[in-house]
Amino acid sequence: MPIFLVRRFLAAIPVLLTVAVFVFLLLRLTPGDPAAIIAGDMATPEQLERIRATLGLDQPIIVQFGTWIVDILRGDFGTSLISRQPVLNLVTDRMWPTIWIGLITIALSVIIAVPMGVLAAWKQGSWIDHLVMTFSVLGFSVPVFVTGYLLITLFALDLQLFPVQGYTPPSQDFGSFAARVVLPSFTLASIYIALIARMTRASLLNVLGEDYVRTARAKGLTERRVLFRHALRNAAVPVMTVIGTGFALLISGVVVTESVFNIPGLGRLTVDSIFARDYPVIQALILLTAGIYVLVNLLIDISYSFLDPRIRY
């Protein structure tokens, strides 16, 4: 493995550790007895005792943190306080709907947004540009759940093209799966498309003003070739960056979208656990999403060195 990959991987460790400390302290630093917070107002002393024991709250805080981290590194994220199942099982049970919708959303977004941004930059100042920019500013101004309900009203209630809510696994009935993921995916994609289209346009406009684009024109290349051979690849790095940072928005969006469309994925699990104060599950989910976020951005960082030969870590 090239040395820069090793370095990038090592650089991710402190970030994840910070998240872990934060997640760990979140409960410990809240005023009052953590066990009481988790158990709620109606808890019996026995229940409190059991929670304390499960979380190891009777031990010194450093020891608690150490045991917790070691367990996690072994793949043991604890046991749900509500369902008594291992947290890891809960997560693996619920992750597929989220993964499917996430992947479809990303694919949709890139396929739609990049051409949009390119077109807008190419025809800067034209009606196409204005249309793209309008759509883009709408995309991240209209909240996901508003978009979601708007799409439901329009396409499910009025036009009756798609089912209103719910989810079917693809293995069970692919037709039903396909029909049910369209609206959630487009809902979720609306922010991402806005973000990527806007960045593609800005980055491309930037590149189109560079000296080497002038050189390419001075060589007598067609505008099309100037755009595709010379400008696009140079404009790619900021676009990749925004795909990475936008991933956090996507995760937030998943939580809301799954609630709107009643999809039994990780987003719903998160919301349910938070209201049930199922603390081990919350911890695991925050760690997991942060881990995925860090991983995605790591992959994107690595992709830079393929896009631009000047970038070596």
Binding site: E210, D211, Y212, R214, T215, A216, R233, N234, P309
Partner: peptide, 11 residues
Amino acid sequence: FQEPMTALNPV
């Protein structure tokens, strides 16, 4: 052009 670094496509 003047600046041969920026006048060539870096990628």
